[in-house]
């Protein structure tokens, strides 16, 4: 059976959870088996995961599961997987998934592939494609163990809708004794679209000349329902927070639309955003390497071009 970890944020599921569940359902169908979703901690209406492809949901609400803790969550996920006899486990490659996938694989001597970008191919053994060389290439990996753990890059699989609700089972073993780290404080900007989940990203570089000029980037992002990002120099100069830095040493993103403003497109930046489905580049330098990786380009000054884009967006929204 295929088990999918459905990550929650407070009382509700993250978008990446629905994506992982839809991926798990399609994988289960190609393996001729069922898809079970694993929920750790309490959530409103866990049965709704049926609408995204889960046949069944197992909710673990034992003591210790309120707040994410690596050892506790690994134990909970492992208990759910064993209770359902699951041999393939799917997780989203969120910051939580980046911890749980390797830990769970290590416990079960499973074949582990992280950074997965599509459904596995079962025509000769069990192979799956993953991103490598920081988005500069892909590799097809053969999984040679009976237990398998796959972690998929957020935004690489479409959410699908299915009829019906899933059956719900509860587990409640006390896991508080497994805890090894203590959470002291969480610093999160409420209401903002997380970069890795955003479908549209507006990103600014050194061409914007200073942090005081980000107003128009934020305005455009708001009109598009987009998240904001920045290049490495911008985060190094502390014009923008480190959490917005996309690129090889920053966050890797895969939005449907990436709009780069005043970013030249160094190979290290492309490594973090090259997986975007459509790329628009606005730069004063017609020789900027980013134009070679772009679908649409405007050679021009950001201070002239961006207000025009904002005006057009306002006209459309009006």
């Amino acid at each position: 059976m295929v088990l999918v970890f459905a990550e929650r944020e407070g009382n509700s599921f993250k978008k990446s959870a629905y994506e992982a569940v839809s991926y798990g359902r399609d994988l289960a169908e190609s393996l001729g088996t069922t898809c079970v979703a694993a929920v750790i901690g309490r959530v409103e209406n866990a049965g709704q995961l049926g609408r995204y492809g889960a046949h069944a949901v197992v909710e673990h609400t034992g003591a210790g599961t309120d707040v994410f803790e690596p050892a506790v969550y690994t134990a909970a996920l492992d208990e759910i997987a064993k209770s359902q006899n699951c041999d393939v486990v799917v997780l989203s490659g969120s910051y939580t998934g980046k911890i749980l996938a390797p830990k769970l694989a290590a416990r079960n001597k499973a074949a582990l592939v992280t950074g997965v970008v599509e459904l596995p191919d079962m025509s000769s053994g069990f192979t799956v494609r993953k991103s490598c060389y920081s988005n500069k290439a892909f590799t097809t990996v053969q999984l040679n163990a009976p237990n398998k753990v796959l972690s998929i890059i957020p935004n690489s699989y479409s959410i699908k809708e299915f009829p019906g609700e899933a059956t719900l089972t509860q587990l409640s073993t006390d896991l508080s004794g497994s805890s090894m780290t203590q959470s002291l404080e969480i610093d999160k900007q409420a209401g903002k679209v997380p970069l890795t989940e955003a479908e549209v990203v507006v990103s600014g570089g050194r061409g914007l000349k200073g942090p005081e000029n980000w107003g128009m980037i934020e305005e455009m992002a708001e009109l598009l329902g987009a998240a904001t990002a920045c290049s490495k120099p911008v985060s190094d100069m502390e014009w923008r927070p480190h959490s917005e830095h996309v690129g090889q040493t920053g966050i890797t993103i895969k939005p449907n639309l990436y709009i780069a403003i005043g970013i030249s497109g160094a190979i290290q930046h492309l490594a973090g955003v090259g997986g975007s489905k459509v790329i628009c580049v606005i730069n004063t330098d017609p020789e900027a390497p980013f134009f070679k990786a772009a679908d649409y380009g405007i050679v021009g000054d950001a201070f002239d071009v961006v207000p025009k884009l904002i005006n057009r967006l306002k006209e459309i929204n009006a």
Partner: peptide, 14 residues
């Protein structure tokens, strides 16, 4: 301090 989706978390451990 570690990165989490959309922010950071301060943690302590032995």
């Amino acid at each position: 301090t570690r990165d989490i989706d959309g922010g950071r978390e301060k943690v302590s451990c032995t």
